[in-house]
Simulated scan of single mutants.
Amino acid sequence: MPTPGPAVEIRQDEILTGEAVALDVQPIGYFLRAVGVLIDMVAGVLLFVLLALVVSWATRENVLGGELTGVFTIVVMVMVMVVIPTVVETATRGRSLGKLAIGARIVRVDGGASGFRQALIRALVGVFELWFTAGAVAGIVGAFTPRSERLGDLLAGTYSERTRTPKLPPAPPGVPAALTGWATIADVGRLPDRLARRIAQFVRQAGDLDPAARIRTAMRLADEAREFVSPVPPVDPETLLLGVVAVRRERELRALQGEDERTAALTAGVGVAPRGFPER
């Protein structure tokens, strides 16, 4: 009997591609998506009013017969509610005016780009859930789905993905050059966690502080830290704080990596029978 392969755990914010690769995705939030839908609907209403004015002018100028006014009104409604949204989403691969404004796009549940079929289904269902109910159905369905999907998304197999990722924080500073040798022998393990958090916060925000306040805060924190640091290097207060934060961060990172390696080694050894005994 073949041994089953390792199970792939898929979290809520991940999708599994056809190659069994889990991709981390960021669905757009409920309120942002509601804003995007509202922008699209307002744009649709303005376009409908513009086209209706054109039809009204054509009727007054006898360009269109009076009996054709109703027909052209229906044609304008179909264009605004179905045709134009379908063409726009197909041509832009899931984008629209509202989605551009909130930084989102429509993608398939497997992470692929949305196509004509998905755009048409969403537009047809949107006639009911967006236009005929003023967005009430879409709002209710979106509130109870994991990725804020509306009814059209559920039927088309799509959802709205975030395209503007948050800006990454700057890389933390390393050990100052003046403390390279000291970092190999420094004892900072006795530093209280509360004081360590205050020092780390100061290091992150030092560049935004007033110079005088920055010097005062560094001196005060360095005086508190010297009681728990051994040996104390002969450097200025801020350099001392930078070194303490960098050393603690590097040692905590090494400890976490070592724990992960031990856990992986123990996990790999589970299920291996002792030598001389058959596996059951």
Rank of each mutant, 00 (worst) to 15 (best):
S160Q: 05
A156H: 11
A273Q: 09
A119N: 01
K167V: 10
V125S: 02
D210T: 08
R147N: 09
T217Q: 15
F128Y: 14
A265R: 15
A218Y: 07
A58F: 04
V88W: 03
D13H: 13
R164Y: 09
V76S: 08
V80S: 00
L32H: 09
V141T: 08
I28Y: 00
A218L: 10
L256V: 12
R95P: 03
D193Y: 14
D210F: 05
P234G: 09
R220H: 12
F72I: 04
R105F: 04
P192Y: 14
D13W: 09
L68Q: 14
R275N: 06
A138W: 03
R60N: 11
A119Q: 00
A156S: 13
L256F: 06
R11P: 03
P231S: 08
P169E: 11
W57I: 15
S114I: 01
F144M: 14
W57L: 15
P211M: 12
N62E: 09
I10K: 14
G29P: 02
P176A: 00
A218H: 07
P85F: 04
V141G: 03
L64A: 00
V175Y: 01
Y30V: 05
A222I: 11
T92H: 07
V78D: 10
E279W: 05
F128P: 04
G243W: 01
N62F: 05
P211Y: 13
S160H: 04
G139C: 07
G258T: 08
A123Y: 00
R204E: 13
V78I: 15
A101Q: 01
Q257N: 11
F144C: 10
R194P: 01
A34N: 07
T239L: 10
P173G: 03
G44L: 11
R194H: 13
L32V: 08
V75E: 07
R108S: 12
W182R: 00
R150Q: 02
P4T: 10
V25P: 05
V54M: 07
R122F: 01
D210E: 11
V232N: 06
T180E: 05
V21T: 13
D193N: 14
P166N: 09
V54Y: 03
R105Y: 04
A265K: 14
I102H: 01
L240M: 15
V232K: 04
G111C: 11
D13I: 06
E224N: 12
D223K: 13
A104P: 00
A143W: 08
T165V: 11
R216Y: 07
L209S: 04
Q26E: 14
R117N: 06
E252W: 06
R275M: 06
G157L: 15
E161I: 11
D223T: 15
D110M: 05
D223A: 15
